[in-house]
Design a protein around this nucleic acid. Sequence first.
DNA 1: TATTTTGCTTAACAATTTCGTAATGTTATT
DNA 2: AATAACATTACGAAATTGTTAAGCAAAATA
Lengths: 228, 228
Amino acid sequence: MESNFGKILVVDDEQDIVEFINYNLKQAGYETATAYNGDEAIRKAEVFNPDLILLDIMMPEKDGLQTIQQLRRNPNLDNTIIIFLTALSDEKSEIEGLKLGADDYIAKPIKPELLLARLRTAMRRLKKDEEQGNKIVFGDLEINKYKFTVSYKGEEIILAKKEFELLNLLASKPGRVFLRNEILQKVWGTEVIVGDRTIDVHIRKIRQKLGIDVITTVKGVGYKFEME
Amino acid sequence: MESNFGKILVVDDEQDIVEFINYNLKQAGYETATAYNGDEAIRKAEVFNPDLILLDIMMPEKDGLQTIQQLRRNPNLDNTIIIFLTALSDEKSEIEGLKLGADDYIAKPIKPELLLARLRTAMRRLKKDEEQGNKIVFGDLEINKYKFTVSYKGEEIILAKKEFELLNLLASKPGRVFLRNEILQKVWGTEVIVGDRTIDVHIRKIRQKLGIDVITTVKGVGYKFEME
DNA sequence: TATTTTGCTTAACAATTTCGTAATGTTATT
DNA sequence: AATAACATTACGAAATTGTTAAGCAAAATA
């Protein structure tokens, strides 16, 4: 069943545990998939695209630590939450795991209420991150990477790709001056070569579309973003 | 025998399995019917009107995936729960199945206790679903993940599978921009390679069928779902 | 089984938007 | 005032998307 609670991938080599967890998650309304080893987990994660992965830390062949490293390499799983399942004994692994990018861990034996509580929290945070974490707010001005829009006093302003990227770069560090070279590198990349006036033209369009003065010229140096 | 436990249709091409499951279900107090292939399942489902269908994913001729699509189109089977029976090996089918609206799956070989436990959960959830309805609503627009249909102001609009999956993906996170690559990965999968115009054409059909502007193009980036 | 219908993809072309440049005007600094 | 750096404008090429029709495979129907 597709649900709006979220999608969870359960990974453990012990079938009983997987089924036990799976049962509880389903009942709680989550959409689930399962895997019984690291490789299977990696394959399924790509297709299933879970919001969260419950990953056993101790598995034969490829263990959880190795698995998580590979999972993290997949850009699509960037903001997938990974929670480790650990036996109480392996304390070292726990710490290792968190270092490697697990967001949390849950100790076995697993108590359903605790598990679900943790998941609810994690999911709530995920939603917040996805919707708000990708946006920068300066007073009435909002730059939303998630929606790829900019809005001023609630009005949506549509910027072209380059314009958006440029504004976004400047706004990422308000007050700081970006050299023209720097801007070229970060927005256009190292390979593309464009004339110097190109930047100006885009700056102009941004200023025009926004209607407010947030980009300041620093003559002979570059540009910076500044509110007021 | 009339029973208040619920009605279950068992579908598998292997007679032994059907009889084994059937025996266990009867014993547990369920009212059952059986079918040995997809077409028979579809016919019997219409007459028998089961609360739940146990459906083998691997069958000759019409397999479980095809069968489920047809079943879901039948309005009478709106909130019939479908549970897949899978051999542990067929992972792809499993995921496809979940995408297509199976509610759960049970791995063979089947253990009666596990089967019954799952059924109890599923039946309990049935009531919940009936109350909540399995759809996402945006104003006058309703996306029903069960029936694979969309309706606008009460009018039912039938989308093809790809169209539905595409709309559903975009609508799953309203406002958020999905990159073309992302769309390809999530709707078509990592293995399938299709031309770039393919997405556009599907987007076009969705826009055409819906008649309203809910999909916004973000040039050079992707598409997003937005009401108003 | 034969026939019709539907769904998916592609290719070709049209329409649109974006982007970069050149030409020219403006501003700040010396 | 002279000069260098930036602003503005308009235009055309390039990139991107929209649209249509057609071919093929799969599914539905008779």
